[in-house]
Design a binder for these strands. Structure first.
Length: 284
DNA sequence: AAAGATGTCAACCGCGACGTA
DNA sequence: CTACGTCGCGGTTGACATCTT
């Protein structure tokens, strides 16, 4: 079964690097006809390439709004933050970096940031191992104390958390409920998107009594703003809600989104991306 | 100077999602 | 509902550049 490949391998098609002439033809064709119906582009433009190849060449290289040159430090930081939140969703990440392509960001991550993040995470874990966590206080907040996060094993019975009251019907906060459920219960809720599930995976994948051990351990007092976006246990849901709102073009602008991301302490993102695999132990 | 190792990044590949007949 | 065509995504490849020995 399955469909035939878009580009037959034995067809008389050019492969490999594009020539300047091919670039020019494609650019001119798209300028006149627009960048739709890629399947018909090679035929109509007289290019010996498959439609897919044309599309890729246009999106990654020929588009007029492509930003050339090195990734700036600001862009790098944003990539790290977005990757911590979204994982390998390169197109989503690229969507927040004007002029950058998913391919470019993916390459940049694989060649520059991947290793860099690994070494920084190792350093963080080493630091964590020296200290113990403190339990949550009565009001559900967590003290800012160093935490032991030696393991990336998730407990089967998860600690309670305090949720900030978002429904699955709306991206608007309903109220600040202060109800408590277990993490396991929480994960069964419809409104948990895979994005914040990812975050919860990593959150849960630590051996500690706190539902947010990495928060209590990694934030400096200045970073840790209880009951604000990055301080409360509900913050990741709030972040996801923010993300969803953006996807629907409601409530939040891109600037809002970037602003919120920039306020997240880097340490939480460094930890949040590495521990998901062990989360499989949680499902029964 | 040369050969092998490593890094970079454009391009390819396969698959899933989605639209349509 | 099914089959098929197209698009878009993320993982991978491979050619070329640069570095190391």
């Amino acid at each position: 079964m399955g469909r035939s490949p878009c580009c037959s391998k034995d067809a008389d098609l050019n492969r490999g690097a594009w020539t300047a002439k091919e670039d020019m033809i494609l650019k001119e064709y798209v300028r006149i006809h627009g960048d739709t119906s890629w399947r018909s582009v090679p035929k109509n433009a007289g290019l010996k390439r498959c439609g897919k190849s044309c599309r890729l060449r246009w999106l990654n290289y020929l588009r007029p709004d492509i930003k050339r040159g090195n990734i700036s430090s600001d862009e790098e930081e944003l990539i790290i933050r977005l990757h911590g939140l979204l994982g390998n969703r390169w197109s989503l990440i690229a969507g927040r970096l004007p002029g950058r392509t998913d391919n470019e960001i993916k390459n940049y991550w694989n060649t520059h940031l991947g290793k860099k993040m690994q070494s920084q995470k190792k350093t963080l874990v080493k630091l964590e191992r020296k200290e113990k966590p403190s339990p949550p206080t009565d009001d559900g907040k967590f003290k800012v104390t160093p935490v032991k996060a030696t393991a990336v094993r998730a407990p089967k019975v998860c600690s309670k958390y305090v949720d900030s009251g978002y429904s699955n019907q709306s991206t608007e906060p309903v109220q600040t409920v202060k109800s408590s459920r277990t993490w396991t219960e929480l994960l069964q809720e419809d409104f948990i998107t895979d994005y914040n599930s990812d975050l919860m995976d990593s959150t849960m994948a630590t051996e500690s009594g706190s539902p947010f051990p990495e928060i209590s351990g990694q934030y400096s007092p200045d970073d840790f703003r209880i009951d604000e976006l990055q301080g409360s246990p509900g913050n990741f849901m709030q972040m996801s809600s923010l993300y969803n709102s953006l996807g629907q073009g409601e409530n939040f602008t891109d600037d809002d989104w970037v602003h919120e991301l920039k306020n997240l302490p880097m340490s939480s993102l460094l930890l949040s991306e590495s521990q998901g695999d062990d989360f499989t132990q949680l499902s029964e």
